[in-house]
Amino acid sequence: MSLLSVQGLTVKFAMRNNTVTALNDISFDIGQGERVGIVGESGAGKSITGFSILNLLSRPGYIAGGSIMFDGQDLTKLSDKQFRTIRGNRIAMIFQDPMVTLNPVLTIGQQMVEQLQAHRRVSRKDAEIIAVAKLREVYIPAPEERLKQYPHELSGGMRQRIVIAIALLLDPQLIIADEPTTALDVTIQADIMELLLELCESNNVSLILITHDLGVVSQMTQRMLVMYAGRIIETGGTREIINDPQHPYTQGLINALPQQTLPGEKLRQIPGNMPALSAIPPGCPFHPRCGYAVPTCRTVRPELRRHGGSDVACIEVERLHGTTPHKVDYA
């Protein structure tokens, strides 16, 4: 049985003049110890997906439909009080900016002890021992010293490691990491990703990794979801999708990478932009940018169905293989 099962999740934002749909009928499962990547351009709905699971959606956003089953309970039905036993405890979140998690006016030690004591009956002394052990697990040098330091005294990479240590403090079953290394240098990113992978593997923790970097998804995850304009447009095994993407958008994302073209040659860009939530076109949301679009694509909303190694939301997917796209004119 899966640890997390999201079914038909729909999230809306009630704006002044109208209501827009940020997530449209999202469904996916994650098994215990499984690592899943969520990729897509900014604004696709990746963060909103993570926020919904943790009940962190803020006004005007609300869950308009669907269920989020976590270990047998529907998270969408929990009260705020009940949620406190889940968030930070059984499901932990790591954000791009470590200062979302860290309190600037408390020492690292105070924050870790507080977090432990909020969920467990432990003495201060024991909490500190656990904190030091967790800092050691994330390879923080001189962990006893760090407990006395404030976040601003540490480098960005060190802060993100501490956030990971805090995430692991209560032995969560699931970690949601939203672009955890996007603000860091590649050498630091590589260290942190390796650490996260090692910790998830050795503790059998499930991971949802939100990123725009397909290389990172490839290194870290077993399955992936590709999102576009609030929908999942392709999902399947990470290797399968990266080696043989089925959806024209996924193909476009991979083909647009500079390493997919010979140096100095024109890159294969995807024309146009992802639409705003208030202007999502009818039919396939990708059709104005798609080189394979036929008239039906403008009217029929494609459902996910099996093709190749993945589930794909494209009505033209059978025809698309072995044909070349036509040129898209886009202002």
Binding site: A190, D191, D213, G215, R239, I242, Q259
Partner: peptide, 24 residues
Amino acid sequence: RALLSAVPKLDDQAPNHIRLRGEI
């Protein structure tokens, strides 16, 4: 060398980079 090895590649199955010691 460390910098180039740290770039995640599409065909990587796991992180595999030259680890640098210490902090910048």
